[in-house]
């Protein structure tokens, strides 16, 4: 097995400190305060620029973040801005991981990264399904787990654990509107 994705794995000439230095130097205006976390470097990105930053990180020959491991939402209710979208990037050839976080306000749309990594498609649908965060430019933004008529976004912190009471769910909370 000698593929382009793994051929130069052993020639990683930067360690984490150098990766951070590079992020500080070349991405100072797009990634705020990149720093090493418990597991991997992590930084904040302005949500309106996330797709452009992701594309740059993927195409940078020194970084090559070609693999999107995970994309998820986080709800910080009642803080504002309320949501956070977290991207876990991975460079298979250079063995870097990087976490990008965007603050997203209610009703704010996030530019999709499906054009950068097609795997983002289902991740973004899941984030929409669970948090109601909309992704601008997504080819097919539908609910993925729940049915289309479902009311509410279950992973939001103000959504009750047992759901709302209806014909099928006698143990739920009384509906919020009444």
């Amino acid at each position: 097995m000698g593929h382009a994705f793994c051929a130069d794995r052993k020639v990683r000439d930067m360690d984490i400190a150098q990766l951070l230095a590079k992020l500080h130097a070349d991405y100072a205006d797009s990634i705020e305060q990149p720093e090493m976390g418990l597991d991997m470097p992590s930084g904040r990105v302005d949500v309106t620029r996330i797709d452009a930053v992701c594309r740059l990180l993927k195409e940078d020959p020194d970084l090559r973040f070609d693999f999107l491991t995970d994309l998820c939402g986080v709800d910080h209710h009642p803080a504002t801005p309320r949501f956070e979208v977290v991207y876990h990037l991975h460079s298979l050839s250079l063995r870097y991981r990087l976490r990008l976080k965007c603050r997203v306000d209610t009703d704010q749309e996030v530019p999709t990264v499906t054009s950068v990594w097609s795997t983002a498609n289902w991740h973004e649908r899941e984030t929409y399904d669970m948090y109601g965060i909309r992704f601008h430019g997504h080819p097919d933004l539908r609910r993925i787990y729940l049915w289309d008529e479902f009311d509410g976004f279950p992973l939001r912190k103000d959504y009750p654990l047992r759901g709302y009471q209806d014909d099928y769910n006698p143990f739920g909370e009384p509906p919020a509107t009444s």
Binding site: F5, R9, L92, T119
Partner: peptide, 18 residues
């Protein structure tokens, strides 16, 4: 395979040594 985010045996069967 990399673009789709495959992992495990599905990724390795496509020639990505990971």
């Amino acid at each position: 395979a990399v673009d789709l985010g495959l992992s495990g045996p599905n990724l390795r069967a496509s020639g990505v040594d990971w």
